[in-house]
């Protein structure tokens, strides 16, 4: 997984290397700290989605109960 991403990063940097004049967060990338950011955001997203899925299930259960009566 990580290998694919680093490969992508290399491609990205090389593709854009002709425009080095403009300042981008390249250091953040070469440090690998960008993975921390992505990991944190993915976890937050996972948490929120988990919550939504749980709510979805609870509503489905309620619907079943209401329908049965």
């Amino acid at each position: 997984m990580k290998y694919i991403f680093s490969l992508l990063m290399v491609l990205a940097v090389s593709a854009n290397s002709f425009a080095q004049g403009i300042e981008m967060a390249d250091a953040l990338r070469s440090d690998g700290k960008i993975y921390v950011v992505v990991a944190v955001l993915s976890l937050v997203l996972a948490g929120i989605l988990f919550y939504v899925i749980r709510t979805d299930r609870r509503i489905s259960r309620l619907e079943k109960e209401m329908g049965d009566k």
Binding site: L11, Q20, V38, S42
Partner: peptide, 16 residues
């Protein structure tokens, strides 16, 4: 959404 978050930060973007 996961694709967006992951590729949104790791994918290449034009330098503007």
């Amino acid at each position: 959404l996961f694709y967006t978050v992951i590729m949104g930060f790791l994918g290449p973007v034009p330098r503007l």
